[in-house]
Simulated scan of single mutants.
Amino acid sequence: MWQEISKFGKKLVEQGLVSSHFGNISVRVGEYMYITRSGSMLDEITKDDVVRVSIYEPTSLDLIASSEVTAHREIYKNTSALAIIHDHSPFAVIESLIHREQGKERIVPIDSEGSYFLHDIPIVEGGIGTEKLANNLARALEERKAAVVYSHGVFARGSILEEAFVVASMVEHSCKMMYYFDIWKDMNKLP
């Protein structure tokens, strides 16, 4: 299991979706999840960087698991997710800031792939590692494959890690297209 998590940790760093020490990855297996440890370098994950914790109740290993273990737990309990990737992709974070300044609660992709596959991306609030964030994410991801935590990053879910990675990549791609298109519109004084 840790090898698959390691593979996608490297991909996240290579794609610029996280800096090495930020973000986290988990996979659900039955009543447990395998999740990266707090502070682990995602591009250098070893067997010791992944811990197994219960989906249904906190355990003593929560202390060394990712600070977002509560969010992963709630998402697994309330959605069909079997894999979760949390990244800190820069354009998604920027768009969450811009959209909230404009009073919007969702990012609606303007590119055809993002529009077709993502529809819209909820922007949720809550502090890192808090119950509020965990509950907000679980609600947002009941019907969506991704949500952006305001000023923090993306949570993407899938039935396997590859699907969660594709979703996380699509969110960043759509946010990047939106950001650059808005710059072009501003430069050309278009509405």
Rank of each mutant, 00 (worst) to 15 (best):
S38I: 06
R139S: 11
H119P: 02
S40M: 06
I85N: 02
A146Y: 08
H88F: 07
S169M: 00
W184Y: 15
G114H: 06
E68V: 06
V93L: 05
E162G: 06
T36G: 01
V93W: 03
N136K: 06
E57Y: 12
A92K: 03
G126C: 12
Y76H: 07
S60A: 13
F165N: 02
R37M: 07
Y150M: 10
D87L: 02
V166K: 01
G39D: 11
G114C: 08
S80F: 15
K10V: 02
I107G: 11
S26C: 07
L190Y: 15
E105G: 09
A71G: 12
K10Q: 03
S6H: 04
T46D: 07
K77E: 05
F117R: 11
Y179L: 12
L82Y: 12
L133Q: 08
L133V: 12
E172Q: 06
V27Q: 04
F117K: 11
S174E: 02
G23C: 04
F181G: 14
N135M: 13
T46R: 12
F22T: 12
S26M: 02
I128C: 07
Y34I: 03
A156M: 03
H99T: 09
I85D: 00
I84D: 03
S60C: 07
S115I: 10
S54N: 14
S96C: 09
G126I: 09
D87A: 12
H119T: 12
V50Q: 05
V27D: 02
E131F: 07
P109N: 08
V13L: 01
L61D: 13
P191E: 13
S96N: 08
D87W: 01
K77M: 11
V148M: 08
L190M: 15
A147G: 04
R73H: 07
K104R: 15
M178H: 13
L17W: 00
G114N: 05
V171I: 10
S89R: 01
E125W: 12
K189W: 05
Y56L: 08
A168M: 03
I35V: 12
V51K: 08
G16W: 00
E14G: 01
N136V: 05
A140M: 04
M41L: 14
H86K: 09
N135V: 11
E131Y: 08
L141I: 10
E74G: 01
L137R: 06
F22C: 05
S80P: 02
Q102N: 14
V149M: 12
N136H: 09
H72I: 09
I183R: 14
E14L: 00
Y116P: 00
R157M: 14
E125K: 10
R139G: 03
G30Y: 09
A134R: 11
V124K: 07
S159L: 14
I98Q: 09
D182S: 14
L63I: 12
D120H: 14
R37S: 10
G127M: 13
C175K: 04
P90V: 10
P122L: 06
N24F: 08
E101P: 00
K104I: 08
T36D: 03
E143D: 15
V13T: 04
L118I: 04
I55M: 12
E101H: 10
F155T: 05
G114A: 07
A147Q: 04
T46H: 06
Y34G: 00
Q3T: 13
R100H: 15
K104L: 15
E163Q: 08
